[in-house]
Nucleic acid binder design. Structure first.
Lengths: 163, 163
DNA sequence: TCATTGCGGACAATATATATCCGTATTAGA
DNA sequence: TCTAATACGGATATATATTGTCCGCAATGA
């Protein structure tokens, strides 16, 4: 059971976009540069975020990406669902309906309890991710990982990237 | 993000093994037959359960698989970890350390907050799965999905499979 | 001794994830 | 109007993971 790299990329980059001035957008190439990511592939994930409304894409000269809503309104769950899709990780293939002791319609009135248990566990996972926002991630990172030097370096890069 | 079919198979079949008399084992072929699963591939998952101690394998004539401990002591988490491995689904690739504003050693004193959030969410998922046992699954299934007819059919199959 | 069974390695087939490229549409500015 | 920059989506290629089979070996009960 694995989560693709795109989720990590997207969360980090939403944090970067949250630092840009309201209404200003950063192009794909700059976002890729910031974490040394493959630009062409990153584009696919950015497009997924765009389709989900998490970011807004502006085409044409001076185009790029900006957050679709306030960073406090974007949860890690929103990003995961946009990138990985909304399907649960556990997929019940109804094997109870197969074989010499197959469950008939009457035995299947209720959903398979095993699937129920796994979906409930996933609900707990989703709830935890829904409770964390891009804004909070940025606040924690600012406190833990940005001294004055790095903050200056970031501001300088951002200014140049917005050009 | 997907969970492999092996997990579903393993949970269902642990339920079957839990119904066998203490100390009696069921061979791979019978377990595969019960849910119409590919025997050769199922063998791989059963071996993983065996390595994890969830089931005990008996080799030779009249061999097969039986539970390694009481069904009330086997959680869905135990089975997931045995089949899917213990690695978290979220894999932090430390992209914060790359690019023009890379986080240096001082900025990395604490683990990346994004990774922390994802690992905490997975902890909630694991906790939910750890709270559900094979014994409970069987009790729910017995109440919801087994009328007298199906119970008889299952007993008959089990008797023949144990032979 | 033999038939049955699990174990693990090698291998093959298929699916998914990762990654690139290109033609098209859009847009700001010259 | 023209041009350069940009995102979009489809097609395609490659790498990795999953799914699945097969075989030789070891163990075991009859």
């Amino acid at each position: 059971m694995k989560i693709g790299d795109g989720v990590e990329w997207a969360v980090h980059l939403c944090g970067v976009l949250a630092a840009a001035p309201e209404g200003r957008s950063l192009p794909r190439a700059k976002l890729a540069e910031f974490h040394d990511l493959p630009p062409a592939y990153l584009a696919k994930h950015l497009q997924a975020l765009s389709r989900a409304g998490i970011v807004t894409a502006d085409r044409g000269v001076k185009g790029g990406y900006r957050l679709g809503r306030a960073p406090a309104q974007i949860s890690l769950l929103d990003i995961v669902l946009a990138i990985e899709g909304v399907e649960p990780a556990f997929r019940c293939t109804e094997i109870r309906k197969r074989g010499p002791c197959a469950a008939g319609p009457s035995a299947c009135r209720k959903r398979c309890p095993i699937a129920r248990a796994f979906l409930e566990a996933e609900a707990a996972w989703r709830q935890a991710l829904a409770g964390v926002t891009v804004a909070e991630m940025n606040a924690v990172a600012a406190a833990e990982a940005f001294d004055d030097n790095r903050r200056r370096a970031f501001r300088a890069w951002l200014t140049a990237a917005l050009q």
